[in-house]
Design a protein around this nucleic acid. Sequence first.
RNA 1: GGAGACGUGGCUGAGUGGUCGAAAGCGCCUCACUGCUAACGAGGUAGGGGUUACACCCUCGACGGUUCGAAUCCGUCCGUCUCCGCCA
Length: 421
Amino acid sequence: MLDIKFIRENKNLVAEAAKKKHINFDVEKLIDIDDRRKKLLGKIEEKRADQNVANNQIVKASSEEREEILKHMGKLKQELEKEELELKEAMKEWQRLMLMVPNVPDASVPEGADEKDNAVLKTWGEKPKFSFEPKDHIELMLKLDMLDLERGTKVHGFRGYFLKNAGALLSWAIWNYAQHFFLRKNFVPFIAPAIVKKNYFYGTGHLPSGAEDLYKTQDDDYLSGTAEVPMMAYHAEEILGKKDLPKRYLAFSPCYRREAGSHSKDVKGLIRVHEFFKLEQLILCEADHNQSVKFHEELNRNTEEFIESLGIPYQQLEICTGDLKGAHVKSYDTELWVPKEGKYREIASASYYHDFQTRRFNTRYKDDDGKLTYPHSLNATAIPTPRILVSLVENFQQADGSVKIPSVLVPYMNGLGEIRK
RNA sequence: GGAGACGUGGCUGAGUGGUCGAAAGCGCCUCACUGCUAACGAGGUAGGGGUUACACCCUCGACGGUUCGAAUCCGUCCGUCUCCGCCA
């Protein structure tokens, strides 16, 4: 959420941001409501002051005076009740609109209508050339008995899967390797809950839009699709010390996504599943744009380095304005080469938000001059499983149907260098 | 899941209808003192909104109710602790 003062002073900027992000939002309407809010609040505060004065008088008043004061207060109360109700109504609309205000994209974000306009920043690695007809990850993994989709759908349902044998081992190996890899970069390791109270999803911007993609429990909690939500909620309502910043967290969590609206997409295999696991990088830093930019580049580079260490070809995308989510200032996506599909598929996303999220979470820190300030937040995927397996097995498949394991993972596979039946 | 107790400032903790945004202690800050440090002494010290600055408003877990008036009474919810039950 943006500061209402900022919105009032920069309404053109905000209107422009909404337009760029294809968010239907009327800034003038919000400002009208805010005018009303301020006016009502002023009137109410005046009456409350009056009430407080009368309150103090009544204690030492004579009985006639008391009569008089009581009459006055009764009248005040009636008027107050009416105005407070009006304010309540206005606040409801005010809050609804405030949640719709998009964050302002950075000037460096390329203009574009949708994902087709995302800009390729770089490509890395050499796409494998096969002397044979390559298989897709489903065929490979089924034949190597790493994956059971039939029983996955029997037991879980649509998009269900079991990983078994080397499929399970490879997942654990990736988690453990990723843990060692990223912790060298000075993160505090976490295992975060996926069951999270509803209100925190507003903090990250996953609510109100995005509700249809969230599972919820009978207790009205929601299942998070990313550790970003619990990790941002971790410091909700807290005041941090400036000396404790930046906070650098590496969180592992299961992730749940209903994938509503993408029923026809990637219906087979491990690209798009309802339940997966992810290591997520998250940073809270001082409220300084340059720091946000610096850490954003760093988080993104961490992911790149990790992928490079595995040796999987990738490309980096700079997300254009039209594809940028409401809360984001800027995002990069990392996409891995999927040989059988002949295209790059998303594996990771790195974003920064300025104080948009921390404002909603009411996470603050004490500045040098004692002022409470909202820190900046950033997050980036470290690595998700099982999606990473798709590119991994397809890129490293051999003519005989076996899969070569990247050397960095071999120690985590009990020395196993290849997967074969 | 059952029974009971409890939620007050950075912390401990007093406060059962009005002079309470709140005693006292600890901590912290400033000053004074001292060769230096510590102790002692004096003063200050919750958060948020608002204002050029004041004034002023809100906040005693949350929401709602009673009342002219609520930290205080009532209801609901949330949370914590203890005991029991169940359980990896």
